[in-house]
């Protein structure tokens, strides 16, 4: 079982907020011993999801959590927005949508960067995406 060691809540209302979330994720990943590849995967995923929350969800927030399971460190990031939600989830996750700001490729690609990926969304009810990545061992 993983314990939450520390948590940070951050708003996503502007592009600069998205950068702050991704910087926080980078700092934490480096501090917890993630290698350059894992760090880039995590922060790029954060960048994609942060943009989605801002552009498609009209803003929201991110919760960054530092996890520990005894031998490894994990970083979990939850993105929540109160936007229109996603109607055709299967198509979005297959990378089918290709809007100007790349929701399709963003989501399907992001899923391949992290060990855990969870998405909840319904039309009109906003979107919540949870990603998690662990140090390798």
């Amino acid at each position: 079982m993983a314990d939450v060691v520390q948590r940070w809540e951050m708003p996503i209302r502007t592009e600069d907020d998205v950068i702050l979330v991704r910087r926080k994720a980078r700092m934490l990943a480096q501090e917890r011993g993630f290698d350059a590849f894992a760090t880039a995967a995590l922060t790029t995923a954060a960048s994609e999801l942060g943009r989605n929350a801002l552009v498609h969800g009209g803003g929201g927030g991110a919760l960054i959590e530092h996890l520990a399971d005894g031998t490894r460190s994990g970083i979990r990031i939850t993105f929540v927005d109160r936007g229109p939600g996603i109607a055709d989830m299967a198509r979005v996750l297959a990378g089918g949508y290709s809007t100007a700001r790349s929701l399709g490729l963003g989501l399907s690609g992001t899923r391949r960067l992290v060990e855990e990926f969870d998405i909840e969304s319904a039309p009109g009810a906003g979107t919540k995406v949870v990603i998690c990545k662990w140090t390798r061992y």
Binding site: F37, A40, A41, T44, G95, T110, R112, L113
Partner: peptide, 14 residues
């Protein structure tokens, strides 16, 4: 382009 950036983009299919 850095190694980790290239690996990440390719994994995302881009």
């Amino acid at each position: 382009m850095r190694a980790e950036v290239a690996a990440t983009l390719v994994r995302m299919g881009f």
